[in-house]
């Protein structure tokens, strides 16, 4: 159990929770505010990460220029999906998003020339040359660590990710309380009623989708920086559903529920790693990996039974018709 007492391990858990906070904040804007069922959020994360990596490695751009372009590319992807698909009603839109996320993953897997293919970003310069997009980020991390007097790169990363995540959570919370957020919440309740009150519903839903996609793109950047390497396999649909679990755990419709849900989810995910006591120790490690997901699922079902509104949600809002 030495890992459990290691600061680096928990810093890693914290970084992941921060990245998932950004990722899920997008879902909270899309679903919690506007009622959009986006089951393809991971695609926007992939677009953000790949755009940055490709621009740095292939075009030789500065990371500081490539990063905002990664976010912009994710937002653009949201726009391109939304323009046709948001004309569909709820469930059909959900189907399109999940299909889109699989299309992105398969394109990334098969377009070796653009993305490095299934081998991931290490192949961005072609076979045999190890491509690297991360040197500028690591230099920045080192520099920031020196300024703050922090040795561990993980802790520096933790501070950066959470500063950004908390700032954006706060901003999103403010946005939700503006007249703009009010229209979105209205659309979540009844889009026909809102359009009968003179609001162009389509435009608002598109804005929510694009904002959420940009946040996923940002999460993709941090994901790429954290691991210095990624491949299409990192963008499985499961990631999107982890985001949804966080959303439900924390509470739908409350921005501050996202970091809380992400921390709880990160903790559950990390803690179940150490199931090396009976009865789990009777299984081999491969089986244990599945049992772990099963245990997480059961824990979440249990929590939802006790608090269907999530940790920070309002119970009253669950029962109104």
């Amino acid at each position: 159990m030495t890992v459990l007492s290691s600061g680096e391990f928990w810093a890693f858990v914290g970084v992941m929770a921060g990245i998932y906070t950004l990722f899920t904040l997008g879902l909270q804007i899309q679903f919690g505010l506007a009622g959009l069922l986006n089951f393809g959020q991971v695609a926007f994360m992939a677009v953000g990460a790949y755009t940055m990596a490709i621009l740095v490695v292939k075009q030789g751009w500065s990371m500081w220029l490539a990063a905002p372009l990664g976010v912009a590319a994710a937002a653009l992807a949201g726009l391109l999906v939304g323009l046709p698909a948001l004309r569909l009603r709820g469930d059909y839109f959900a189907i399109v998003t999940i299909a889109f996320s699989e299309i992105v993953r398969w394109v990334a897997t098969n377009e070796d020339g653009l993305t490095g293919g299934s081998q991931g970003t290490i192949n961005l310069r072609g076979e045999g040359v190890a491509a690297q997009y991360n040197s500028q980020w690591e230099r920045f991390q080192g520099w920031l660590g020196e300024q703050l007097g922090i040795r561990s790169k993980d802790v520096v990363m933790l501070l950066v990710v959470w500063s950004v995540a908390l700032l954006l959570t706060w901003l999103a919370g403010r946005l939700a309380r503006t007249p703009w957020g009010r229209v979105l919440r209205g659309i979540r309740e009844d889009e026909d009623a809102v359009s009968s009150l003179g609001k162009p519903v389509f435009r608002y839903r598109l804005q929510a989708l694009v904002l959420g996609a940009a946040l996923a793109g940002l999460a993709g950047l941090f994901y790429a920086w954290q691991f210095s390497f990624f491949s299409p396999d990192d963008f499985q649909p499961l990631i999107t559903f982890f985001g949804w679990m966080i959303l439900i755990l924390g509470g739908v419709g409350r921005m501050w529920a996202v970091p809380v849900g992400a921390l709880l989810f990160g903790f559950l995910f990390a803690a179940t790693r150490f199931f090396d006591f009976p009865p789990f120790s009777y299984l081999d490690s491969a089986d244990r990996a599945y049992v772990r997901l099963l245990v997480i699922g059961l824990l979440i079902i249990g929590l939802v039974l006790v608090r269907p509104q999530g940790l920070l949600g309002r119970r009253q809002e669950m029962v109104l018709e």
Partner: peptide, 28 residues
Amino acid sequence: FQTARALTRLTVLDNVRLAAPSHPGECL
């Protein structure tokens, strides 16, 4: 509408305020 279409999880006040025309705050 035939059945009233209250926006149930918004406050009564917000239901009315949302319907206000030409509100600059509804543009990002």
